[in-house]
Amino acid sequence: MIIQCTKSLLDKVGIKGNELASSEGHEQFPDSLMAWHANFVSINRRKAIILMNNETRYPIVIYRPSIKDFSKIKELIREAIMQALRMEGVRKEVIEAYLDKAGEISFSKTSSRSMVAKMNNTVREIEFMGTYLDEEAKIQRYISLVVGRLIQISGSNEGFYPFEKMLEYLGSISGIDIDEVLDIDLYQLKIQINIEGHDIWRRVLVPATYSFRHLHNIIQTVFDWQNYHLHEFVVERAENKPIKILMDDDPETLEYINIDEFDVRQERFVALEDIFPEYNEVMYEYDFGDAWEHTVTLEKVVKSKTFQATYLDGNGERPPEDVGGAGGFEEYLRIMDNEKHPRHQDIKAWAESQKERKLGPEKINQRLNRVTSGSGFSTIVI
């Protein structure tokens, strides 16, 4: 494997000119798959090593490397590649086969201006998605999932997604179909809204490496919540203080949390597999005013070759947004059941924009694919 470095990175690694490999001959497959361009940059005022695969433009980030890390940079790069691809659900055997074929890491200068331009574009994309950089982690788990799903254009060729191209070429060099590249644990989760006297729930399959930010987007989608309000996850533990997983990009949420009472974590950087199956149940609260509590229960683990969330089934219509909590929901139902009630028409008109839309499984799964393959959440139904 060749790492084609900018001068700034070569200086940090301490590689001298006579130790460099040739920078030529790594532009065409399969050699291009075994080569990565790399730069040493500042992002969010933090130093980072950015790697971009020559063939697929798949990105990997090593964040805030220490002086000591540069002495073992080869091991760190291999581990970063391993972790990033495992987060994508790539089989361990496929990753190991790739690393074996790529061979011992050597370093060279960057090659063409074209490759440097592509690498610089990858750096800009990582800067743009910088909120997915975990200050506490050296090897970044989630930035590759996000930036690897930004469409890339190369000349007059049709656009492509780096993660899809990476899976395709890993299959190619392994001699297997793309479906066989993946080995994914899916968590079957039942999500129940806790309202006495009502049985309102949804069942979904979710990749174990998805973050709790992904899970938030999934819950919002399958219940057709509108994402108007704050939310949080809580994991109760018998012998330790509860884990509180927060939407940490909201400053007020972090400002008022009691860190002595809770083990506080950031939802963008906590994988479902960090919590499940050690803990079988998680509480999710949406809208701290109406206080809609959801119990998220792990029912079973399913093996899959598809890295996506899937809606399975559900029951009951969720309360309208801003209805006033459980008491307001009961009042709403009484008025809606009585056409002669003086407020019936007004409440019916109000509820049109607040209640759950009637969406079939196919449409829900189309929305799930959008909100979990990208970086954000949208209420738009196409």
Score class of each variant (00 low, 15 high):
Ile43Ala: 11
Asn44Ala: 10
Arg45Lys: 11
Arg46Val: 02
Lys47Glu: 13
Lys47Asp: 13
Ala48Trp: 04
Ile50Ala: 11
Met52Gly: 14
Thr56Phe: 13
Arg57Phe: 08
Tyr58Arg: 10
Tyr58Leu: 15
Tyr58Thr: 14
Pro59Asp: 05
Ile60Pro: 00
Ile62Lys: 05
Ile62Asn: 11
Ile62Phe: 07
Tyr63Trp: 01
Arg64Tyr: 10
Ile67Arg: 02
Ser71Glu: 09
Lys72Tyr: 03
Lys72Arg: 10
Glu75Ile: 15
Glu75Met: 12
Glu75Ser: 14
Glu75Cys: 12
Ile77Asn: 05
Arg78Cys: 09
Arg78Lys: 10
Ile81Glu: 06
Ile81His: 03
Gln83Tyr: 10
Gln83Arg: 14
Ala84Ser: 13
Ala84Gly: 05
Met87Val: 10
Glu88Gly: 07
Glu88Trp: 05
Gly89Ala: 03
Gly89Ser: 07
Arg91Trp: 05
Val94Asn: 01
Val94Trp: 00
Val94Arg: 02
Ile95Asp: 06
Ala97Glu: 15
Tyr98Asn: 13
Tyr98His: 13
Leu99Thr: 12
Asp100Trp: 01
Asp100Cys: 05
Lys101Ser: 10
Glu104Gly: 04
Phe107Gly: 00
Ser108Asn: 02
Lys109Glu: 07
Thr110Ala: 05
Ser111Asn: 14
Ser114Gln: 08
Ser114Met: 09
Ala117Val: 08
Asn120Arg: 11
Asn120Lys: 12
Asn121Thr: 06
Val123Trp: 01
Arg124Gly: 09
Arg124Pro: 05
Ile126Asn: 03
Glu127Arg: 04
Met129His: 09
Gly130Tyr: 04
Thr131His: 04
Thr131Gln: 09
Tyr132Asp: 11
Asp134Cys: 13
Glu135Lys: 04
Glu135His: 05
Glu136Ala: 00
Ala137Ile: 00
Ile139Arg: 06
Gln140Trp: 09
